[in-house]
Write a protein that binds this DNA or RNA. Sequence first.
DNA 1: TTATCAAATGAGCAATAGCTCTGAGATGGA
DNA 2: TCCATCTCAGAGCTATTGCTCATTTGATAA
Lengths: 318, 318
Amino acid sequence: MSKKQQHDSQRLDEAARAGWLYYVGGKTQDEIAKLLKTSRQSAQRLVALAMSEGLVKVRLEHPIARCMELGEALKTRFGLQFCDVVPAITEDPNSTLGLGQAGAAVIERTLKQTQAQTIAFGTGRVLRACADELPLMNCPQHKIVSLVGNIAHNGEATRYDVAVHIADRAKAQHYPMPLPVIAGSEEEKNTLHQQSHVSRIHALAKNADITFVGIGNLGSTSPLYVDGFIDDEELAYLSDVGAAGEIISWIYNREGAIVDCKINKRVTSSTLTLASEKPVVGIASGLNKKKAILGALRSKLINSLITNETTATALLDE
Amino acid sequence: MSKKQQHDSQRLDEAARAGWLYYVGGKTQDEIAKLLKTSRQSAQRLVALAMSEGLVKVRLEHPIARCMELGEALKTRFGLQFCDVVPAITEDPNSTLGLGQAGAAVIERTLKQTQAQTIAFGTGRVLRACADELPLMNCPQHKIVSLVGNIAHNGEATRYDVAVHIADRAKAQHYPMPLPVIAGSEEEKNTLHQQSHVSRIHALAKNADITFVGIGNLGSTSPLYVDGFIDDEELAYLSDVGAAGEIISWIYNREGAIVDCKINKRVTSSTLTLASEKPVVGIASGLNKKKAILGALRSKLINSLITNETTATALLDE
DNA sequence: TTATCAAATGAGCAATAGCTCTGAGATGGA
DNA sequence: TCCATCTCAGAGCTATTGCTCATTTGATAA
């Protein structure tokens, strides 16, 4: 056995030498072969061995490196299609700085395709930031479809209607959803949904090639509460039934299951496909949204995520 | 200008991404191109950029038997505290390739200690290479002190001011020596040395827990000659009195004894303790430096050595 | 607005690396 | 000593990478 061990260690020695010459010295495998008086193939094997034995350690020094690791970890943990993690810029754990640029980059990549794409958008401040970061483009081949009604409580257009801005900047076709976000009653919602132009929008949204949504937490800062869709009583009820977050106004719990509540009966938004094959990208950051993001990831309401370093770390802590 | 800078940093960001995917993720450039929605060529350029910008650091963790033997032999022969020998990479007997990584590894080990350390540095190309290979760290507990003045002949900062780079990368305290390397006269040197802030630096250097220095040979390629501190006449004189090498601008002979010459009267560098108990690490390789290294070893100007295989073999031939 | 220039891009090709298959030779047990 | 078994070297092929050149793009200044 000791003979074998000695042989192995000699081989590792040679591997280390080859690895050194290759990675530090920048030599080609041919040159190494000559130096080590062996064939090119053997040199190749030695270099590969040095790598697989972990003799060679590569590290990348850039703030992005850590983000890539976090993204990879999240991707694996939650079975995501992709995950972008942007470096945390401020100390503020709830900052959304940087998400706009990152989201815009993904949207831009989508828009750059020559093949016609149907792209669905939710609403929210973060998505709005993405729209603002988007460069002016000329993409008349794409369809931008809204997932959420664009009429607010009081009849005016909603504050964060994102699809219209994106369509505007991209010069793309725009399919808004001309409905109140929350219908007055369940019956009203059903009536509205039966309208053919509405069901056409929903059909488009359902078959979107890619979907972008924000993720809201539920609490006194939630847009649904701020805009008066939820009163204090309802908020308390939601808290009792374990509501964790909201995506295009659909309220779900810690496991990502849509909860049984008054709001969900009246939302006019398109429905989200669980575990969709097409990318459904959630864009959100902030420790106050941790529960909400986790829920959406767990039930695969979303299958892709753009977040920041702090939040990514927190999500992985779970 | 800021627009350009922003652009550059964005490009570096992308390069870091590409580099990470390539070196850490093991993806091919084609795959990276797809992920980053760009062409294969651009991906290749990004990966190359990540490498040339020094974002990618490679290190090899394996004691190579032959180098270990050489190191051990040198350690015994010259009574060294430690000795690292790295594999020779090129045919060039004067190559210094690889010393940077090896030196950086030793420096990194020192910096990793939680106990506060005072670390002294000389200058030179090889030490500079070490600094470049050092990973970014956060060691505010350590003190980095310069052994050599950081003002060149013509008043500008010296080219290879190493301590500043190390302190920068390690986020350590930095004590530069704000003096010309060589004073105009012996009197000027004495005056300068009497300044309290200078003597404080010298005291720090004297008590350094570990010292790193380059070793220079004397001849037409010596930095002292190239930078104009020594003229042809002086060079000839030094050759006559048997000068063999130079450490932090102190010129010594084959036996390692400081020679009596004009330069040594005017150097402002700290003095080196002979046979110090603390490690004094010389980093140098190349057959043209054999005499210089041998001298330093003989008189124990240095008590530790980092060199390469070729040089180690030559030193043992003596 | 237009001319000018530098930087970035993509194509195409040559160099380099990685993989698989086959056979030679070593190893160890009967 | 012979044979079964296993490892490893080398050939040959394919994939990947690096480089050069022509062209486009975009910025800048007139």
